[in-house]
């Protein structure tokens, strides 16, 4: 009895050892910079003289020159939300379809799998430049192909036309990130037990019904995680938009706005305030998603 008790105690101790390294590293290298940014947001810090920063209270946030009074900021907020909602929805649906196709057996599957994963395996900085060039209004191959297929009548300025720029950005993001969703969902599909499918097949249940009644509920936890992480990245989208359309107002995201303030205008205080509000908006969206989607992480194994 006593031996069993001490064994349990040592188990509890080693259980603590298991998680402590991660927490310590996270607090040191992720938590501390976060707090520091929060502090900067209450100062008038300038990139050239960080040491001379003075405490200015909430004036980076509210007031005449505050962030919340800047219409450009609100424009960036709306752009980001529009971008995130549309692209994440499209990517989830398409990713699900692609994963189901890749999970089925067909000739040349290995090659197809590799080809589908490639867009995501390319640095955004490369693919954004590649698309910028394909979308070029004069030399771009995209206009050429679409005109050849008689889908459009004249060359379009994909990234420069205010009406098209956001669609162009979303299109490239969907192209780039659908493979990510497909990979996550495919991995979940592969861990599914095969016996329920056998049973469903023997019972002659329609595949579509099987998908909604068996597959979807089983992969739901993995799907929810994939969507959360995808949404977190979409809400902070930066490099794709920055490379494709630079500082254009039509596509400016919250991250692009923050970078402009912090790096171009060197206003560390104001830029930090924008980053902090961005952080709060993302946190709010995540909380809403978790509540509405009823994502559970109470540690219970099913």
């Amino acid at each position: 009895m006593a031996e069993k008790l001490s064994l349990n105690q040592s188990r509890i101790r080693s259980a603590w050892l298991f998680i402590t390294p991660m927490i310590v590293v996270m607090v040191l290298v992720a938590g501390w910079p976060l707090l520091r940014t929060l502090w900067f947001s209450f100062t008038d810090a300038d990139l050239k003289e960080l040491g001379a920063a003075k405490f200015v209270g909430f004036s980076n946030y509210v007031g005449e020159y505050g962030l919340l009074a800047d219409p450009e900021w609100w424009n960036a907020v709306l752009n980001t939300i529009r971008f995130s909602v549309i692209s994440v929805t499209l990517e989830t649906v398409l990713g699900l379809i692609v994963a189901l196709v890749l999970n089925a057996k067909f000739p040349g599957r290995a090659l197809v799998r590799a080809a589908v994963l490639i867009p995501w395996a390319i640095p955004t900085i490369v693919s954004a430049k590649m698309w910028a060039w394909m979308m070029h209004d004069q030399f771009g191959v995209l206009n050429y192909v679409l005109m050849g297929l008689h889908i459009i009548n004249q060359p379009l300025a994909w990234t420069a036309d205010p009406a098209l720029a956001m669609n162009a950005v979303i299109m490239v993001d969907v192209w780039k990130t659908t493979p990510f969703m497909a990979l996550m969902i495919l991995a979940a599909l592969q861990m599914l037990p095969t016996d329920c499918y056998e049973a469903a097949r023997v019972d002659g249940i329609h595949p579509v019904r099987v998908f909604f009644k068996v597959t979807l509920p089983l992969i739901r936890p993995a799907l929810m995680v994939a969507v959360i992480f995808r949404a977190l990245d979409a809400l902070r989208v930066f490099d794709l938009i920055y490379v494709l359309t630079s500082n254009s107002k039509d596509t400016m995201s919250m991250s692009v706005y923050s970078r402009q303030q912090l790096v171009d205008f060197q206003q560390v205080g104001f830029g930090s305030a924008a980053s902090t509000v961005l952080f709060l908006i993302v946190a709010l969206c995540t909380a809403a998603y978790i509540t509405i989607g009823r994502v559970k992480f109470d540690g219970d194994a099913r």
């Binding site: 188990r11 509890i12 259980a15 998680i19 927490i23 996270m26 992720a30 938590g31 501390w32 910079p33 976060l34 520091r36 940014t37 900067f40 990139l47 960080l50 959360i228 992480f229 977190l232 990245d233 902070r236 930066f238 919250m254 991250s255 923050s258 970078r259 912090l262 790096v263 560390v268 830029g271 930090s272 924008a274 980053s275 902090t276 961005l278 952080f279 993302v282 946190a283 995540t286 978790i290 992480f297 109470d298 540690g299 219970d300 194994a301």
Partner: peptide, 30 residues
């Protein structure tokens, strides 16, 4: 977290997520 969960497990997972809510440029200077 999976095999020896505590009441804090859920909040630990959430807290980890929160580090992905700040844009990289926001923590660049620190």
């Amino acid at each position: 977290m999976v095999f020896h969960p505590t009441p804090r497990t859920g909040s630990t997972l959430l807290w980890m997520l929160s580090t992905k809510m700040m844009p990289p440029v926001g923590v660049l200077v620190p």
